[in-house]
Design a protein around this nucleic acid. Structure first.
Lengths: 183, 183, 183, 183
DNA sequence: CATGAATGAGGTTTCATTCAT
DNA sequence: AATGAATGAAACCTCATTCAT
């Protein structure tokens, strides 16, 4: 509400965006690089995120919430099969940098903080809905449990991150995965 | 041939084992931790592997060669399908630390040295033979190209590495993958 | 202009002075000794001079600029002969530590950076003016080229640095040199 | 007398030669480089010279003895002037690496051991004879004391070591010095 | 007596975090 | 609230010296 708040909000957002960019490309990047890209002082970064781990968690949280929102949105569509597979494909296509962030986190020893855990749970819940609906619509085999399908999602994402994997190959890989999932 | 070489060999082996262990659990671990686990002085590690990157590469190389040897061995079996799926399962089951090492390497900026590259090529070649034979035996669909199947192998490995994935879930995930691969 | 800059300036100056002192006495001294003498943390030294070589260059540059300024100042005097020989004597008397620094630099492999090179050129130019004027005034023989006179300056400086050379001896040595230079 | 002695002698000589070469070019070189050039194990170097400082001293001693021998030899010549100036020129021409060694020594903190000190004294004595004879022959001014002439010798040597000093310039510099010394 | 491996102390440099303005 | 300087701990790597063969 106070004018300064606006500045602070702006800074927080700019830092998050910069961090997503920086850590997405180099999991081991220094906090100072984030500050430089965000065009704020290093101390400002630490004012908003008292710890590097907290910064990483915040970035991860944002990513997960974004995915959750997309899943929720897709859950409203008519074609449950397209919704499920479309979401799966999107996650795999875009997850390169999310992965890098998760790795940076786990390298820090801390196994994801409260917020990130919640965001992950929310995302998984939304994905579970997509899966359920796709199974009820007959698009996905009924004997596939959530845990293994989610593991497949994670695996496919990570596989797609493999250095130099061409999009065409990635798509053919996904076709193999989808053939195993269809009923 | 010379007497002391025996000790040196021992140390080199001990360092490699320690490194595999240490970097398998924490890609960012320090070289000193490796030395401590191997029970040698830090300088001894650097005598055998003049650079941290070289140490990482050596560990990765050993792992890849081990996998290649297993693939070659399996290629001699009669049942080409079992050979292929068996190898796939083994790789996925054991690759947790291989991954961590590859990541530590790529975090170091250097994209894997000569030896590691060769070992990787050898492993992929051996895996290609397994795939070919499984396809000719009708155990794997013929329209699955090597690139995507290999990407799937990598992805499944990485997916299995997901923190706290239970073996049972991992196996069910693999069943989904295998159903997509079978003809 | 910004408040903290004052502190930083102070620190930078303190570090330079400390470095001049430390490296003047022991060319191989560690950066940590400089930090200790300057009463700052080691990282502060590296913030101001990102590399040990850069620190050495900075010290050398300061020294050379100081000498250049003195030469320029003397060039304004009426008695060109006194100006020339006075400068020569000053350089020889004070150059003990400048030498040590130049050696530390060359030991580092890097043959003096941009700034130091420029400072050296400026100093040589100013010395050249002193020589010219002394020759035109008939105080120094005309057939003495700049290169050899400068080499003589360097040599006399280094000779004076010889361990335990007494000032009286140094002065008599300079008299011999000056007799060779007079017309 | 025992056969092994011959080997040891050989090794000692080879090490000294290698050390002269290595330290002549890089005062900060490691002892291992000396061992490599001498084609002996590092431990062999330390068997002959229990300390790096002792090795440096030995090299310096050899050099000084060599110079002393030359001075003694020249002292037998008829033309005392040529003998003196010839020796002076030789010292200056060849002293580049001697200097480097002396610097390496002084960088080590130790101010030259017993043997090196004696060798230095011997060399100075022989040079003193050359000077005396040249003065009595009227080739060098009588009012030049030994201390300052020796300082000049050292200075000229060091000046000649200046990076990239061309031989022609060095010779012209020496002419200036000699003009100051002549009676 | 020679060798090469092993060692620990120390040097340079980076980085997350705190302090002073 | 924002900044940038300061800091110490730790990382990687080197080297003189010692041990075991």
């Amino acid at each position: 509400m106070r004018p300064l708040r606006a500045d602070a909000r702006d800074n927080r957002a700019r830092i998050l965006i910069a961090a997503e960019d920086v850590f997405g490309q180099a999991p081991n990047a220094s906090t100072e690089e984030v500050a430089k890209l965000a065009e704020v002082g290093i101390a400002t970064v630490f004012r908003h995120f008292p710890t590097k781990v907290e910064l990483l968690e915040a970035v991860l949280t944002v990513r997960l919430e974004r995915l959750r929102d997309r899943a929720i949105e897709l859950a409203g569509h008519d074609d449950a099969g397209s919704a499920f597979f479309g979401f799966f494909t999107q996650v795999v296509s875009e997850s390169a940098s999310k992965l890098a962030i998760a790795e940076a986190l786990s390298a820090s020893g801390s196994a994801a903080g409260e917020a990130a855990k919640e965001a992950g749970a929310g995302m998984r819940a939304a994905f579970g809905v997509l899966l359920d609906r796709a199974q009820q619509a007959g698009a996905v085999r009924r004997d596939a449990g959530f845990a293994e399908v989610y593991a497949l999602l994670v695996g496919a994402s990570r596989g797609a991150t493999a250095a130099g994997l061409e999009p065409a190959v990635r798509d053919r890989m996904l076709e193999l995965v989808y053939d195993g999932l269809r009923s």
